[in-house]
Design a protein around this nucleic acid. Structure first.
Length: 493
RNA sequence: GGUCUCGUGGCCGAGUGGCUAGGCAGCGGUCUGCAAAACCGCGUACAGCGGUUCGAAUCCGCUCGAGACCUCCA
């Protein structure tokens, strides 16, 4: 076990809105649940933020020596839509439009989601349960809540009785909402007439005849209410009480509030110790949303095929950009900001590669790499402050480059620390990876070596016409030559 | 309308009472045949107004602006 497990990790708990020392229930094991995607469409930029945020947490906890069981659901039972196709479930709607089976849609977009997360180097969760595969568990949970008198059935639907709950528990404990305000502020919606109070929410919903996705239940054919799956599956795989539950801030209310309420009744205790919420993403200062027409898909970014994008942005650029902001801040996407991130990341990644080639000098003075390392841990321990960790890594980048260019010398111990620093933080924790992986291409390497040698010879005989021709031609092929003190290296783009 | 969050230099983005991150862009320099890369140096920013304080970007109040949730959404 690494010694880092003893370091004090503080995270902001949405329950109380304060930074708290993270203390697992059953160390070294940690249970962590994150709300996953609804697989009825391509992942957009908004999906990248929680995926990367909690991937960072997953990686960091593992790095600290914990055994983490990370559960992220696939929502595939669909939920009510609030538009003209009222009552029809999202997946069923899409299936009918495209004349395919709902499960086909689910499979297709689940695969797409996995592909895109892989590209972002997001590690797969330990368990990725499908809501549709846990209908029984959800029904059982509804039964428990009914038995305990905190829900009521109306025409095949079961609603959670929020006012009953409020008599003994605090509904709004997570979101800071007051029940009476909720009662007076909630808008009239279809089907609401069945509810005793507008704040009540469905935990089982009766399926209309046209509704494709449906399951038998004690209350007739229907489907689970949209908060049920996370409660049922979280409990099944992580227990009645577990360490961390994450998701976007938009899920705070009503989704997570409802989860707390229903789990508290069904299981007798509040389900989660630390609630963590990542902030939203804006595009050019505007909220990203389907209704605004600016919900860029991840593929749009990777390919650059969208009128709002000046160029393609690689998955690692997106990842780096997201990590350069703290997860609890809103993050604004723009071409200018993305291009800045791309350049910065290239400089960082070049150093991670260059650091391996450096030569140590025994007599070199102490460069205090240890201090940078400590600062990186301190940043991560302070509510996963990846932007600060990255800033510190850029200090290390400067050291790599000064040593590389011969302005500074480095002793063996510092060099070892420096190499470990990049390995641990850049790759293991931040989860960045080299792009343009051309290390394996021996043919290309050999060719480039030859070309660089020819150019070098031309330069030595002051045949600059030839050397510049070589450089220009390579530039046109998106290959950049870098003349350094130790010779010439090259890179794509 | 209700609840909440935020407003930092050209852009992005850390920082929550004094020690003034970082990236990108820009300017000057070193290096180079030239250029690129790299390195060195340069910007004294914190929406506005008022208050608390020896001292505030950081605390309080007001104004203006932006956003989130309250309704499917990461």
């Amino acid at each position: 076990m690494s010694t880092e497990i003893n370091s004090k990790l503080y995270i902001t708990n949405s329950l109380g809105r304060k930074k708290e020392l993270f203390e697992p229930l059953n160390p070294p094991h940690i249970g962590m649940y994150v709300c996953g995607p609804t697989v009825y469409g391509d992942a957009h930029l908004g999906h990248a933020r929680p995926a990367i945020t909690f991937d960072l947490l997953f990686r960091y906890l593992k790095h600290l020596g914990y055994k983490v069981r990370y559960v992220r659901n696939i929502t595939d039972v669909g939920h009510l839509e609030n538009d003209a196709d009222e009552g029809e479930d999202k997946i069923a709607k899409k299936a009918r439009l495209e004349a395919v089976e709902p499960m086909e849609i689910v499979n297709y977009y689940t695969h797409r989601y996995h592909q895109q997360m892989d590209q972002l180097n997001v590690q797969r969760p330990s368990i990725e349960p499908h809501a549709s595969a846990h209908i029984i568990e959800q029904i059982e949970m509804v039964k428990k809540i009914l038995d305990k008198g905190y829900a009521y059935e109306v025409d095949g639907s079961v609603y959670f009785d929020v006012s009953q709950y409020s008599k003994n528990y605090q509904y709004g404990i997570l979101s800071g909402r007051k029940l009476d305000e909720l009662m007076s502020n909630t808008r009239e919606l279809a089907g609401q007439s069945e509810k005793r109070n507008s704040a009540d929410f469905a935990i089982w919903k009766n399926a209309e005849p046209a509704h494709i996705m449906r399951w038998p239940s004690p209350w007739g054919d229907g489907f689970p209410g949209w908060h049920m799956e996370c409660s049922a599956m979280g409990c099944k795989y992580l227990g009645k009480e577990f360490d961390i539950h994450g998701g976007g801030m938009d899920l705070l209310f009503p989704h997570h509030e409802a989860e707390i309420a229903q789990s508290t009744i069904a299981n007798g205790k509040s389900p989660v110790r630390y609630w963590m919420h990542n902030n939203m993403i804006t595009i050019n200062g505007q909220k990203m949303g389907k209704s605004l027409g600016n919900a860029l898909s991840l593929d749009d970014f990777f390919s650059g095929n969208h009128s709002a994008l000046e160029q393609a942005y690689s998955p690692m650029t997106i990842r780096f950009f997201i990590l350069q902001a703290h997860y609890r801040s809103t993050l604004d996407f723009s071409n200018e900001a993305l291009q800045a991130a791309e350049k910065g990341m290239k400089r960082l990644m070049a150093a991670t590669s260059d650091v391996k080639q450096l030569k140590a000098e025994k007599a070199a003075p102490n460069l205090n790499i240890e201090a940078i390392r400590q600062d990186c841990y301190a940043a991560m321990n302070d509510d996963l402050n990846s932007p600060i960790a990255i800033a510190k890594l850029f200090d290390a980048v400067r050291i790599v480059n000064t040593v590389k260019d011969g302005y500074t010398q480095i002793n063996p111990l510092d060099l070892k620390l420096l190499q470990e620093l990049f390995e641990v933080f850049v790759f293991d924790i931040l989860g960045l990876q080299a792009e343009n992986a051309n290390q394996d291409d021996q043919l290309l390497d050999g060719l480039m070596e030859t070309i660089i040698q020819l150019r070098q010879e031309a330069r030595q005989r002051k045949d600059y016409a030839t050397s510049d021709l070589i450089r220009d031609k390579l530039t046109a092929l998106q290959i950049v030559l870098k003349d350094g003190k130790e010779g010439t290296s090259w890179d794509k783009k």
